[in-house]
């Protein structure tokens, strides 16, 4: 079981990384979501794997580690916020220029003049 969970984390990371290195916004966003799953499961697994012992106090003597769960719970909600912001930025960029590439065009580098404008 440990092997399967660890390999699932590995597979999610691989898929996430590959998609994140794509050139268009949508696969990159999906890649980030996959990576988020991987990270969340990874953090969750730091409490080790326990079956059938939820951290709800009862007569039981064994409970799973509650702390990673609490941390991951907020992480899940925050990652929704992050995804939404990234999607909005990607969407705004696409609507503004009809181009959903994540990289700046190579022939339009930031010119030196743009940068020093503020210092004169």
């Amino acid at each position: 079981m440990e092997f399967l969970v660890a390999s699932a984390i590995g597979v999610l990371t691989s898929g996430g990384l590959y998609l994140m290195l794509r050139l268009h916004t949508f696969p990159v966003i999906l890649g980030m979501s996959l990576l988020t799953y991987a990270v969340n499961v990874f953090l969750f697994a730091s409490g080790r794997l326990t079956v059938g012992a939820p951290p709800i106090l009862s007569d039981a003597t064994v409970y799973t580690d509650p702390l990673p769960q609490a941390l991951v719970l907020t992480a899940i909600v925050i990652s929704f916020g992050m995804t939404a912001v990234v999607v909005m930025i990607g969407l705004g960029a696409f609507l503004g220029s009809d181009d959903d590439h994540v990289d700046d065009p190579a022939d339009d580098p930031v010119t030196a003049d743009d940068e020093v404008e503020g210092t004169s």
Binding site: A6, S14, L17, L21
Partner: peptide, 14 residues
């Protein structure tokens, strides 16, 4: 890159 990253997280998690 992706495979290396996946293997690394797998190994660490396992």
């Amino acid at each position: 890159v992706a495979v290396a990253g996946g293997l690394a997280t797998f190994a660490l998690a396992y």
